[in-house]
Structure formats: structure tokens, C-alpha cells
Design a binder for these strands. Structure first.
Length: 710
DNA sequence: CTAGGGGTAGGG
DNA sequence: CCCTACCCCTAG
């Protein structure tokens, strides 16, 4: 056995078996131990081997101070921190000590230099770098790394496989921490939601006023990590069966909870006392007990119980038949009745005679049948109707006028309302503001106003392609929400120019004429197939160059539109990316995962023209010097003069490609004329996440108008 | 009067 | 039960 081996063995025995408790006595890491070994071995001052001195003495510096003054400082330096005595610390605790060591070196540079200077006698081995690097073991592995391969396509619904198995501690802890952070953010929005914890509490103890109070104040444990995850609630049936954690349960949405007779009674009493529509008041009225309900729950329940009293009867549900024609749903024509409209909510109330009297008659008209019972409950007068104004959806024309009005009056909503040309006499100023905020969120935000959190998050959340899809084009990702949205966006296709100039997003904008029923998903071409569902972080999206082939193949379609084809997207700022992306329409440029500054083809300078139709027929390469998100933007804040109206239509920080309906070769040429990446670095907003999907509101907006027809 | 944000209606 | 467009309240 060589001396070194002996020393190693001895050191290990001392270090591991005995441990180190004194401040100066322990080797804080195996690296230091080896270092000390090397030092002592090199110095050949190993008196301890025959003196009988304990190894610990040697290691603790006693020997060093006695026999080796020069290395002593080294030894002290090395063994400055205690060693816990645990092998796991030897193996794991590296970065911590390195940090400590660096801090020491920084605080006491003279000590370090002394170590070096005293090497005139001994050339100390460099203790640090190579073992440090190899031994460094990150305690938190990187969660987000660049993808160099496209992830495997998920089987159904394009749901990415879970990152974690939801079982073992570390990943789950990370998720929970993230969620707890977001929970605070969304606590207000969800404060009335009964989260899992709330439910657990209530299962343990019967509801009381106190618990109600708590319920209202509780912060949901599981707030969506991101809108995308929140969105995944709709796809909960695809969730892994192993997702049994509270977090996962919350993500999957609340469980349905049957309304008890007592709850229903309280609801009716509350409506009688406070009136229809005051759901929040009823909910929080201490006289009533509701089991983790929200105001919306009350509203929904009342709609079921007393359909005749609801402000507006629900329209018959229609669905599409096999032949595409709409057919009446089985429920159609029937009033929403207990036990039918909401199965399992009102099972035959066997336990409560009063409830039986209240609900058992089965005629479906609970209100009429309950009249006597309502009287018994002290309800003698009809429910007070809500005082809210009737909803009045904004039409497409309204939206256009809204845009005009904003260009004309800015955020002077009152003036806009008073503008006879716009036809908003029946609206309130805030109505216009609200509508504009929903319909043109980007413009609203760029004008210096704050979007509602929901609008903002929704923008990040929604897949741009599906949001852009007209109704007749099935979405690439046909989840339920998009279907519903597309239904409502049926009439939105008549929109032409008004939002083009507002949408500079990682968004594909298709001409309105593409709403033609002859188009289909495949018309999108392979160029768009890499629009995998985003996680909400708005990763850059690389359009495959097949988009140009698609454009070539669809020139007629494009030119048939009254408007320009408008593609806004993120591009990698690295032009080489265009040469490396396989033309299969599926690959994602690995560089795109790195959140590099984006490339801009058309920025706010070149897009000074507010209206798309004013764009030139060819793309103007943008002077790189003009790429500055902050450029002139401060002057656009809260526009109130017509001189700045166009500014709201600019894109200060989001790159855009504009493909007017010109031969695709022009666009292709433009791609090659991209400015050099270096010119794009300064001032680019790498975040880029905000305001995505501004078109969304528009789609919904007219949709609401369209909804009148359904 | 407006901005911000909460509440509700109505469709899903 | 969920979503969100629309309505409403209120501080400044």
C-alpha cells in the first residue's frame, strides 16, 4: 500500500467515522481532503505517521502548526468549515463549499496570496478548478433546456407528456413552488373557488360561518401555473391517472358537488332578500350557507332552479348532425328541469320531506311548484330582477367604429360615445373602453393602459393559429375551447382591415376570404404544423420555409382576398437557422428554444402606416437602426391627439413579417434580406409574451354579435 | 371623467 | 362547472 493510499484511507476513516465538529477541524469536502493529502504528501512532513499523533491532529492543523508552518495556513484555509460527518455531504456538498471558499478568497485576498507566495518552497497543487468542475453537482437541475429535437408528438389532443411523474419529491416541490407563486397572483380571481384544501377542511368540519369566511379568504393552492395549464383543464380526461396530488386535482378543475336542499333553500332565500344578480352578496351573507360555492355557482344554480326567473331563458342547444346540419339536441325544447338539465344535482330528495315537497313534483317548473314552499320560507314576493342593463353585444360595425373612434378621440370614451357618427349613444363610456380593451388589447396596452390580467394571460395562452382560424377551418389543435370560439367567430370573417394593423404577434393572420367553407386544415400547409401548443411562455416560433411553398400554391386564394395576407411571427435572429431547418414542416429550430433576440422584418418604423391596406406591395427591409422598441414610443402614451393616433398601431417591440398578397417570391427575397443579427440585438424585447393573441378579443367580440344568431 | 378591476349573464 | 364578454363600481 502506498503512502498516499494509506493517507487516503486514514483520512477517510477520520473524516467519515469520527466526523468533524470543530470549526477548524473538519474537512469540508472530499476535494479539500484530497488537497490536504496532496499537500501533506508533497511536503513529506508526515511526522504523525510515526509520532503517534492522531490523524485528526494532523488534519486539524495541530501538526501543521507544529511541524509545517507554511502549509499550516493552507490547512487552516482548507479546513475552515465544519464537516458534518456525513458521507452524503462529502459527496454532495461541493458547490456550497466552493462558494464559501470563494467568499473567503474575496474577503481575505491576502490569505490566498499568502498561500501562493509561500509556494516558493512548495508548489502546492492547484486545489480548485478541475475537481471543482467535475464535482460540481447542481442541486437543481436545469428545468428548461434548449430542445435539439422536436419532442415526440403527443398522442391525442397534442398534450405534452408531463415533465414530472407527480410523485417524487423534487420535481413536485418545484411545481408547487411555482404554483404557490402564481397562486398569489391569481388569488383574487379565484378567491371564491373552493380549492382542494378548502374542500378538505370542509370535509373534516361541517361548514360554519367561520369556515365560510375562511373560504372566502383562502388562496387556492393550485392556481394555474400558466394559462396554458389552466387551459389544460379542458383536457383533464387525458390526464395521467397517477395525478392524484392535490395540485393535479386542482388543475383538473373542481369536482362537481351536488347542491343540497339546504343550499338551494338558502339560495332562494338569498335571492328573495337580495335580488337576482346579487350572487356575491348572497354568497357572503352570513345568514346563508353554501358549501364552497362561488357566486357563479349560485347564479348557475338559480338558473336551474328558477329558469323562469332568470333574466334570459337559455337558448336551445344545437349541435351538428352527421350531415353537418344542425339538429336539435335531445334537450331542446324542454325547459331546464331538475334532474334533467343538471343530472345528479337534484337526485330524488328522499331524506328531507320539505325538500321533497319542494322538488319532487317533477313538472319541471320548480318556481311555480315551489310557490307555497317559498311562502313557507318567507318568500312572499317575486324575486327582484336584476337592475343591470341588458347585454348588448358589439357588432362588427361597432368594433370598426370603435377603432375609428379611438383613432379620433383616443381614450376619451365619453367623447367617443358622444360622437354621433359612431353610433354609440346607447353605450356607456366604460362600455366602449371595455370593449376596446377586449377587442384591441394590443392597441390598448400600447397606448399606455393596463390590460386586465385575464386578457393578458389569455393572449399568452392561446395558440395563435387556432385563434386566427376562421370558423370553417378546423383548428390545428381542435380542443373544445377553440371549437366554441370558432363558432362564435363565424361572423367575424367580415372583418377586413381594422385589426391587421394592430396585430403584430407571433400570429398567423389569414385573409378573411379564407373563411370560405372550402378551406380545410390541410390548406394551412406544413409550414404551420410546428405550432405546437405553447406552454404560455411564448417560445419563439419558427416558420418553416414551406410556408412560402404554401403561399405559392395558394396564390389564387391569397389574391382572392380583399385584404393582404398577413403573417406575423417570431423568427430566429440567426439567419443560418433558415438554412438548417429541415423543410419537412415539423422541425423546430433548436436555436429557437434559446430565447434569442428576434428578427424583425417590419417594425414600427416601417409600419408607421396605420392601416394595412396602405402597406406597399413589397416588403421594405427595415433599417436596423430603427429597431428599437422604445423608440418614440413614449410619445404614444395615452394618445389624446390625432397626431399620435397612428402610433397605437405600431409595433414597438414585436417583430412582424408582413406578407402582402404579392407573389411569394417577394417574401422569400425579403427573408434573405434580413438584417444582420447583431443589428437586432439592441433593445429587443426578449420577453415578447405580452399581448399575444390580441386578435383573440376581436374574434370573440364579433362573436358575441354573432352569438345573437345562435 | 377615466382607469382599474370586480361581478354577472349567458353560452359552452 | 367553465369561460369570457359585458356590465358595474369606485378611487383618483
Amino acid at each position: 500500500m502506498t503512502l498516499r493510499k494509506m493517507v487516503v484511507k486514514g483520512l477517510l476513516q477520520v473524516g467519515i467515522m469520527q466526523g468533524r465538529s470543530s470549526r477548524t477541524g473538519g474537512y469540508q469536502s472530499f476535494r479539500h481532503l484530497i488537497y490536504a493529502l496532496q499537500v501533506t504528501n508533497c511536503c513529506c512532513r508526515l511526522d504523525w505517521t510515526n509520532s503517534g499523533a492522531p490523524i485528526s491532529q494532523v488534519l486539524n492543523g495541530a501538526v501543521s502548526t507544529q511541524h509545517a508552518p507554511e502549509p499550516a495556513s493552507t490547512t487552516q484555509y482548507v479546513s475552515a468549515a465544519p464537516f458534518s460527518g456525513k458521507l452524503i455531504d462529502l459527496l454532495l456538498d461541493t458547490s456550497q463549499n466552493l462558494t464559501h471558499e470563494r467568499r473567503r478568497a474575496g474577503d481575505q485576498p491576502e490569505e490566498t496570496s499568502r498561500v501562493v507566495s509561500e509556494n516558493s518552497i512548495i508548489t502546492l497543487p492547484q486545489p480548485a478548478q478541475p475537481p471543482a468542475k467535475t464535482a460540481r453537482r447542481p442541486r437543481i437541475p436545469p428545468l428548461l433546456q434548449g430542445l435539439h429535437q422536436p419532442p415526440p408528438l403527443p398522442p391525442n389532443g397534442r398534450l405534452f407528456p408531463p415533465i414530472t411523474d407527480g410523485v417524487s419529491g423534487f420535481e413536485q416541490e418545484i411545481c408547487e413552488r411555482i404554483q404557490s407563486g402564481n397562486a398569489t397572483q391569481e388569488a383574487r380571481a379565484k378567491k371564491d373557488g373552493d380549492d382542494f384544501a378548502t374542500r378538505t377542511v370542509e370535509q373534516i368540519s361541517p361548514p360554519s360561518a367561520h369556515s365560510k369566511q375562511n373560504r372566502a379568504e383562502q388562496i387556492p393552492i393550485l392556481s394555474p401555473i400558466s394559462p396554458g395549464i389552466k387551459n389544460s383543464r379542458k383536457r383533464r380526461t387525458e390526464a395521467s391517472p397517477s395525478d392524484t396530488a392535490p395540485v393535479a386535482q386542482k388543475q383538473q378543475g373542481r369536482k362537481r358537488k351536488k347542491w343540497s336542499d339546504e343550499e338551494t333553500r338558502d339560495l332562494l332565500l338569498g335571492v328573495s332578500r337580495l335580488g337576482i344578480g346579487n350572487w356575491k352578496k348572497i354568497l357572503h351573507c352570513s345568514d346563508f350557507e353554501f358549501q364552497g360555492r362561488t357566486a357563479v355557482d349560485l347564479k348557475d344554480r338559480f338558473r336551474v332552479c328558477c329558469p323562469g326567473d332568470s333574466s334570459k331563458p337559455r337558448k336551445p342547444k344545437q349541435r351538428k348532425g352527421v350531415d353537418g346540419k344542425t339538429v336539435r339536441s335531445p334537450r331542446t325544447g324542454a325547459r331546464p328541469v331538475v334532474g334533467e338539465d343538471v343530472p345528479n344535482v337534484e337526485s330524488p330528495p328522499s331524506e328531507s320531506p320539505a325538500a321533497k315537497e319542494l322538488f319532487a313534483e317533477g313538472a319541471g317548473d320548480i318556481h311555480r311548484m315551489n310557490h307555497t314552499e317559498l311562502v313557507k320560507l318567507g318568500i312572499h314576493t317575486p324575486f327582484a330582477k336584476s337592475k343591470r342593463r341588458a347585454r348588448h353585444a358589439f357588432s362588427v360595425v361597432d368594433d370598426e367604429n370603435l377603432l375609428k373612434g379611438f383613432e379620433k378621440h383616443g381614450a376619451a370614451w365619453q367623447a367617443m360615445r358622444d360622437d354621433k357618427d359612431l353610433g354609440f349613444e346607447t353605450r356607456h363610456p366604460t362600455d366602449l373602453r371595455d370593449r376596446f380593451r377586449i377587442r384591441y388589447p394590443e392597441a390598448y396596452e400600447r397606448a399606455g393602459y393596463k390590460l386586465k390580467a385575464k386578457i393578458k394571460s389569455r393572449g399568452r395562452d392561446v395558440n395563435a393559429v387556432e385563434e386566427k382560424e376562421p370558423k370553417q377551418d378546423p383548428p390545428l389543435d381542435s380542443n373544445q375551447r377553440s371549437e366554441a370560439r370558432e363558432k362564435r367567430s363565424a361572423k367575424d370573417n367580415s372583418r377586413t382591415l381594422n385589426d391587421n394593423e394592430l396585430e403584430e404577434r407571433p400570429v398567423l393572420r389569414f385573409p378573411a376570404a379564407r373563411s370560405s367553407a372550402h378551406t380545410s386544415t390541410t390548406d394551412l400547409g406544413p409550414a404551420f404544423s410546428n405550432f405546437a401548443e405553447n406552454d404560455g411562455s411564448l417560445s419563439p416560433i419558427i416558420l418553416n420555409r414551406n410556408i412560402l411553398q404554401w403561399a405559392d400554391a395558394n396564390t389564387t386564394t391569397m389574391s382572392s382576398t380583399s385584404n393582404s395576407v398577413y403573417f406575423g411571427t417570431y423568427l430566429s435572429r440567426d439567419p443560418s437557422a433558415y438554412n438548417t431547418i429541415p423543410h419537412d414542416g415539423l422541425h423546430i429550430n433548436p436555436l429557437a428554444t434559446l430565447k434569442l433576440p428576434m428578427l424583425t422584418l417590419s417594425d414600427h418604423t416601417s409600419s408607421t402606416l396605420p392601416i394595412m391596406q396602405n402597406y406597399p406591395t413589397t416588403i421594405n427591409p427595415v433599417p436596423s437602426s430603427s429597431i428599437d422598441p422604445a423608440l418614440n414610443w413614449s410619445s404614444f402614451q395615452k394618445p389624446n391627439s390625432s397626431s399620435s393616433q397612428h402610433n397605437l398601431l405600431r409595433t414597438p417591440n414585436l417583430p412582424t413579417i408582413v406578407f402582402p398578397h404579392v407573389p411569394a417570391i417577394s417574401a422569400r427575397t425579403t427573408v434573405h434580406n434580413l438584417p444582420p443579427p447583431a443589428d437586432l440585438l439592441s433593445g429587443m424585447d426578449l420577453d415578447g409574451g405580452e399581448g399575444v393573441g390580441a386578435e383573440h378579443g376581436g374574434t370573440n367580440a364579433s362573436a358575441f354579435g354573432a352569438a345573437d344568431g345562435r
